[in-house]
């Protein structure tokens, strides 16, 4: 039915969505920052076990919408949201939902690597600890190692797990942050321009990692780089001035966009 959710009229059905089960969905979402109308009547369906990327010129609202997916906007007092966002069909803004609990299911990786100024081990162990996910110390150690392995960082840091996470290189720090997010067993991982502070080699590693992680997670990534969106994502959403212009198969978006604005953006006419 409502397989693609674009505000644009008469969207053609997108094949790839039909093959993937829905993980998150938004219906008629509006977000205001004080006087600014940052997201306008946005609807979208995000599939599980795939990478969806949000692209668009800066200020288009892609990061704002991403932060709405795990209610990080709750921390900004002037931010108001209406509309529904669901995870596995359940409203995440429902009265019975604790944002804290939601965030253990929807993890987040930020633009700038932000490890806690603690040891590598403590960084990863923090989440499982506060959520009481592990029964014993050995359990916790296993979980940390497993998360670091999944984030592709373990081999590089196995001899210095108890040294500060802030001593790692930028790319390693970001993979540490991904390991930290994985450690609480999220279902969805949100990434807000995760490579914008990294060099090309580190970026390549993170992209590789994202590609592996999509086997098990629903991943949403905001990026300012169209090349990155093309490389890592199966689906791409183009945002413009607070509206979702187009969402669909990445190949299609980049080769045959339906909206002239998307066309203009990917060919570099604005942005």
């Amino acid at each position: 039915m409502n397989q693609i959710s674009s505000v644009q009229p008469a969207p053609a059905p997108v094949r790839i969505l039909a093959e993937r089960p829905e993980k998150m969905a938004a219906r008629g979402v509006n977000i205001h920052y004080g006087d600014k109308h940052a997201i306008k009547d946005l609807s979208i369906t995000i599939p599980d076990r795939a990478v969806s990327s949000f692209i668009g010129p800066s200020g288009c609202g892609k990061s704002t919408f991403l932060r709405a997916l795990n209610r990080m906007n709750d921390t900004i007092p002037s931010c108001r949201m209406t509309g529904d966002i669901t995870l596995d069909g359940r409203n995440i803004n429902g009265r019975d939902v604790d944002p804290v609990q939601l965030r253990s299911h929807v993890g987040m990786v930020f633009q700038k690597p932000n490890p806690f100024p603690k040891s590598i081990f403590e960084n990863v162990a923090y989440g499982p600890r506060i959520h009481g996910l592990t029964a014993s110390t050995t359990d916790l150690e296993e979980r940390v190692v497993e998360s670091l392995k999944k984030a592709g960082l373990f081999e590089e840091v196995k001899d210095r797990l108890h040294q500060p996470g802030t001593g790692l290189s930028g790319g390693q720090q970001q993979r540490l942050c991904i390991a930290r997010a994985i450690a609480v067993n999220p279902e969805v991982i949100l990434m807000d321009e995760p490579c914008s502070a990294l060099d090309p080699i580190a970026t390549a590693k993170i992209e590789e990692l994202i590609d592996e992680l999509r086997q098990n997670y629903c991943i949403v990534i905001v990026t300012h780089s169209m090349q990155q969106a093309a490389r890592v994502s199966q689906l791409t959403a183009f945002f413009h001035l607070g509206t979702l212009v187009e969402f669909g198969d990445t190949d299609k978006i980049f080769t045959a966009p339906r909206d002239p604005r998307t066309q203009d953006y990917i060919t570099g006419r604005f942005g």
Binding site: N70, M72, T75, V100, Q101, L102, R103, S104, H105, G107, M108, V109, F110, K112, N114, P115, F116, P117, Y126, G127, I130, H131, C177, R180, A181, A183, V184
Partner: peptide
């Protein structure tokens, strides 16, 4: 820096945590 607080919130810590 607020990024530290955000990092904690991002893994599901409460404001107070």
């Amino acid at each position: 820096p607020p990024s530290i607080k955000e990092a904690a919130l991002g893994v599901g810590a409460s404001e107070q945590q």
